[in-house]
Amino acid sequence: MDSLSRLGETFLDWKQIAEVLPSMFAVGLPNTLVLAITSGLIGAFVGLILALMGISRNPVARWAARVYTDVFRGLPAVLTILVIGLGFGPIFREVTGSNSPYPMGIAALSLMAAAYTGEIFRSGIQSVDKGQLEASRALGFGYGPSMRLVVVPQGIRRVLPALMNQFIALIKDSSLVFTLGLLATERELFQIGQDAAARSGNLSPYVAAAIFYLAMTIPLTHLVNYIDTRLRTGRPEKREPDEAAAVVGKGAQA
């Protein structure tokens, strides 16, 4: 009983949690969202370019996309963030005069996200039936417009669930930018939890951070499942009752 109440105090000290909540809402949550959404968008954009390079007929483009993807998918996130942040941070500081490691954190997260989303986009685009490109080319569209108007939109639709999963991973990985040493206003959820935990010697602030992460990731996971089902079964379209008997034009009996 004694050890149980001690555990409860360690993890669920409500006073500690209440103390950390305001700064989590005001600072941590916005920062986590900015990190995840910005690097998600940049990553998706670069990823799409990587995917198109990966399926291009140009061997140099294919090779470059391959090497990039292998490298950034193969490295631990924390290593990439540290190397990019510490390595390019000083150059960035010289050029912009900004002392903040925050942009470098976003850059590192984007580079990793691009490698993963690139592979997701590539598999989606390649899963589109060859007849789609052929039909578009037969209408007189060039390769570029055919990909843009016909093939890529279908490919992306198919991989929306996988993209959402990637975004969830990004929300979690955004916590790793704490390794770059953030200013007080730049701290994201994890860093705020960690600071408070270090100050009080109690783990409850971590629990508060965990609740914030779960509040974002669990609904997103279920949204993924919903999108996935919807994509597989399609939108239920109401059918006209007399569809079979509909009056049709000349030469049409089917």
């Binding site: 039936d129 007849g131 789609q132 052929e134 039909a135 578009s136 037969a138 016909v150 939109p153 279908q154 639709r157």
Partner: peptide
């Protein structure tokens, strides 16, 4: 016109 129609499903 193709055997498999190849309409754009989206």
């Amino acid at each position: 016109v193709f055997q498999q129609f190849n309409l754009f499903p989206h």
